[in-house]
Every structure is written in C-alpha cells, then in structure tokens.
Amino acid sequence: MNIQVTNLTKKYGTQRAVDNISFNVSTGEILGFLGPNGAGKTTTMKILTCFMAPTDGDVNIGGYSIHEDAAEIKRRIGYLPENNPLYLDMQMLDYLEFVAHLHGVDKNKIDKRIAEMIAVCGLNVEKHKKIGELSKGYRQRVGLAQAMIHDPDILILDEPTTGLDPNQIVEIRKLIREIGKEKTVILSTHILPEVEATCDRILIINNGKIVADGTSEVLRKQAQSEETLRVQILDAKNKDEIITSVSALDSVSMIDPVSDMDNTFIINSRANQSSKRNLFNLCVEKKWVLTEMTPLETKLEDIFRELTTN
C-alpha cells in the first residue's frame, strides 16, 4: 500500500510542529524517520495513524484519505506508539485477544494469529503473566505483537527497539526486513546504525521540515563530494618532505599530519578526483613504504549532525 503525504502541516498554537511536508512511501519500502527530539517525527506518525487531524494538508493511504476514511485506514495500519503504552493490569494473552477482536480478525483465526505472534516476538516464556509484571524488553515485544496481530499492510513503529537486548534487536530488525518485503514500514529511531541496517530509505526531519530524503548511500554522496584518505608512510626523511611532495600532486587539495600518530596523514582530494593511484606511484618513486591507506567515509552521524544543527 502506498502512502502519499501532501503539504502536511500541524500547528500547536503558533508553533509549527510539522511544516508543509510532502513525501511518498511505496509498498515494500522500509522508511527510516530520523530527527532530533521535537523535530515532528511523532506528530507525523500520529497524523498518519489517524490519532490526530492535521491543521492542513492530506495523507492518502492506498486510496483512502485520512479526512474521510479514517476507519478504513486504521484497519490497515499496525501502530506501535512512542513509549509503548499498554494495559498493565491485563494478562498478555487476553490483551492480544482483545486487540485481535478490535481489529475484526476472523474468530477462527484469532488463536492461530496469537500463537504466531507469540512465536515471532519470542513471548512464549512469559505468556501467562500480567503485562505489568513483564520487563521493559518483554513489554516492547508485546507492543510489537499487538501492532502486527491483524497482519496489517502498513506498519508504523515509533522507536521499535528501545529496551531490547542485542540479540532481540537483531531478531526484530530481521523481522522488520522480512515484513518490509511485502508491506510498507515506517519506523522512527534515534539509533543511527539501526536505520542503516534496516531501512531502504532515510528521511531526516528538523523543525518540522524534511532536510534530507534518500538511501544512506545517496545521503553520503551528497554530504561528501570529495575523497578523504588516511595514509601512513614510513621511511621518509622527515614529515615536511612528505607534506611538500604530496601537496605537489595535482589531485590533492590538502594534507594534514595526524597529531597523535607518527607518519600518519589525512589527505583530501579535489572534487571528483581520486588520489589513491598518484599517492601509490609517488611512494614507489621515492622508495617510501606505504603501510596504510584507508578511505574515510562520512558517518551517518556526521550527516545527521550537519543537517540538524543550525
């Protein structure tokens, strides 16, 4: 199911929590929603799930508009809200059954779906406990289970892996990837490696506006048009000799010695040029020994920081 967001705006008083944003998500895509606290991620998700009406703009989900067909949209969405609210005084199995009934899951299939969810989310050990007696990680799994119990076309997850142990995180990511093959998934997170590991596409928003949209490779390329290398060169007479000869190369724009490591330098190339070959040839010519040449990638953290700090 496609999601089409057009000129969405939500005002809280005079503050624009979401400011005229538009984007599309197509079936089988996993979209990662990134942004600092208060950027408008959760507000956008609340509007997509029909919890809150926008001040302006429209969301079209599989041909249904949030203004007219909220009930139809709600039936097709599985949602894990921020902070994972749950009825703590209910037993887990009763709770899952309640959610399945609310979603109108066929009565004969409810037991089967619950059993599947318990297996998928690893809830079997704790299934007879009250939700209030579960640990944070298990509650998170219950939250995921209730979001997926009616086999929704769209899954919207607000920070799905908080409170899980590393093994469970890997499993949940695998599960999200699995679901994302056929369904549309939108997830928000603060954990940047998680976005890279799970998402096909990243949307970074700041102050209610979209500041970046694309795959992690595209974002990297945008942020880093020039090549950066870390090299270690041995057997030169002194540092200055290396610096002068390397700067003389056509493709090199800048060379900096790394202060706490001997014989190590950071070398920036000019835009759209590579200096790897030239450097190697230079070392051969001068009889220096090249012991390290590492291309430095801009980390997603850096991109994120650059786009969201003013």
Partner: peptide, 14 residues
C-alpha cells in the same frame, strides 16, 4: 494518563 488512549483510538474505533 498512561497513553493507552492513543493505542485505542488508532485501532478501528471512533
């Protein structure tokens, strides 16, 4: 208070 209202109202319930 507990936020479960959000959970309830994003199910097919008006």
């Amino acid at each position: 208070r507990s936020g479960t209202l959000e959970l309830l109202l994003t199910k097919p319930l008006s």
